[in-house]
Design a protein around this nucleic acid. Structure first.
Lengths: 337, 337
DNA sequence: ACCCCTCTTCAAAACGTTTTAATGCGTCGC
DNA sequence: GCGACGCATTAAAACGTTTTGAAGAGGGGT
């Protein structure tokens, strides 16, 4: 409990507190002999810099915020791993916020981040309200969007082309043949207020159109959440209305749930119904019927977003805002063979 | 960028900064009329309390640290979800640290947490070195162990009985019958320096002994990590030395990897080899052959640990340290039928 | 000898909040 | 009408660091 401060270190090393601060922050500015004396004192006394005091005086912290929609989803977990790795390499701490899809909780989390005076925020926004993020920017907190295109030009964003992904997925399903109408293709999705869900749907409709089918005929089953449980429920609803020939799910969690429900009902996959997921999480390959999916560079998403954010924070002058858009990649497995 | 401080609010409301602080921290102490005036000023000016200044002066922050071994493992993800929920309910921010099994990285992360003067730390230690944690305690940072028994009496810990889990798992495998010797049972594990791995092994050996077999005959395959990929590799090694009749894996990720490797090699599960995982992650039920596993109250682990930690922080006097030990539960699925 | 540099170090102010002890102002009991 | 008391508010100090401008020491060139 004996809080040892920079002053104690200074006294112990026979220098002024300012010099200790220099040793800590710009070691080059201080003579080798003194520096070593100070470093020894720091070690002997077990001094740990008080981050809050530093933040208060310096005007900025060494923490960033990460706000995701669902920490239980392996997609976000991998993003978080990328973020954590880069942040930790550069000596930043990561404050985690889980919005659980609720704009209210997201708002509260952003409030906490603002209080903590984080250096910047990485966020996969759960709604489409740029105003809140602009308010952060006005406070001098940089914002980088993750898995979401930029709201404005003077902002970094790292995203994946979801329309293209939806298009490729449904095109792949249609390529198996035998689809007389769009009605034979179902789209199981999370809340369509989530951008990713809406865009993948748009891509799906485009694929139908490209195949000469009515894009409006896509059967859409909107689940309340993007979890396996919600997927099971959606599949039950779907089966009640008559089986489609192919199902495209907005993510792998939904797809795993759908798969479980179908198999339990005695439906054969892919023979009776072909199935596509999205995200290519690790478990997609290990499921009962291995799952075809759209792969995204998830870990990289987190890494690059963090690198952009910290570059923006540390070199505000030379920093060039970037809008990065990756293309997803089709991974073909048993569920569509 | 216009930082509005408590002084600005005070001026705008025609009171002193001290009163504003009181409105923020003990609203009961201030007359209703003034309080409302101040609250209006706060709203109009968009004031956000400077967390660092507050921490500096008050001597403690409203953040806690969470240090886990592998954020990519759904087990820890669920723990993290429980932690985040409770912390967020009580207005605390969570700083996430991923040790990736490396004591060095864990050490660095703890350093960051110490600098941030977190109120407390939730940790699943990756090694067995209580000294580092004691050093935190000396600094006035409470520590609660998660999924790990207490190092000392005056400390909270929330754990699950891993010896019992290992025992139950292997007993279940043996109950299928046909085991002439312990050699027919393999244990695929992560690094045995990880306590969970070592204890589950002990439980496994105990089960062999209880069945009248030589506990030393358990075939142990130690993988470098507790991931599906590492599991695949371990399975390959295992097959090279002759197939066992039953495989017990230290977690579901390893088990999924083993399962994938076995199936690819044409081995039938459970007919040729029975397989048990551990953790009962969501995906265990959805795998190619649904996986028998040991279920742990994961989300609850996170919730309770956080509640204990925050109770210890907020009521240091009345707080009673607790050592909570849950019992895992066998979940039987296809892989052992 | 003198001046002018460079290289180190220092003293002191500032960051935004919390907290303590003190102040002012009514009100109550007598 | 007087002193005492309670309540609401305030002024000012303190938390531990960073930063700035200035001071001091030593050296080289004239």
């Amino acid at each position: 409990m004996a809080m040892v401060s920079i002053k104690d270190v200074a006294a112990h090393a026979g220098v002024s507190p300012g010099t200790v601060s220099n040793v800590l922050n710009r070691p080059a500015k201080v003579a080798t002999a003194t520096r070593e004396r100070v470093e020894a004192a720091i070690r002997e006394l077990g001094f740990v810099r008080h981050g809050s005091a530093s933040t208060l005086r310096a005007g900025h912290s060494r923490t960033i915020g990460l706000s995701v929609i669902d920490i239980g989803n392996p997609f976000f977990t991998e993003v978080a791993a990328g973020v954590e790795d880069v942040a930790s390499e550069l000596g930043y701490a990561v404050i985690l916020g889980n919005s659980a899809g609720s704009p209210g909780k997201e708002e509260r989390n952003l409030g906490v981040l603002a209080e903590q005076r984080v250096r910047g925020v990485l966020i996969t926004p759960s709604g489409e309200d740029p105003a809140r993020l602009d308010r952060l920017r006005e406070r001098g907190i940089s914002v980088v969007l993750v898995d979401h295109p930029a709201h404005r030009p003077d902002q970094c964003a790292v995203a994946v082309d979801d329309v293209a992904g939806g298009r490729a997925a449904v095109a792949h399903l249609l390529a198996r043949g035998g689809h007389a109408s769009g009605h034979s293709v179902a789209y199981v999705t999370g809340p369509l207020t989530i951008r990713q869900c809406a865009e993948r749907r748009r891509g799906a409709a485009e694929a139908l159109a490209a195949a000469g089918l009515d894009p409006g005929s896509l059967r859409v089953a909107e689940a309340a959440a993007m979890t396996a449980r919600a997927g099971e429920k959606a599949a039950a609803d779907l089966m009640a209305d008559g089986l489609p020939e192919a199902v495209f799910c907005a993510n792998d969690l939904l797809a795993l749930g759908v798969l479980r429900a179908l198999l339990r009902a005695g439906v054969r996959v892919p023979d009776d119904v072909a199935l596509m997921g999205y995200d290519d999480i690790d478990f997609a390959a290990a499921s009962a019927v291995s799952l075809s999916s759209m792969r995204q560079p998830t870990y990289q998403l987190g890494r690059i977003a963090t690198e952009l954010l910290l570059d923006e924070c540390d070199n505000p002058d030379e920093h060039a805002h970037q809008h990065i858009m990756f293309q997803p990649e089709l991974v073909e497995r048993e569920s569509t063979q």
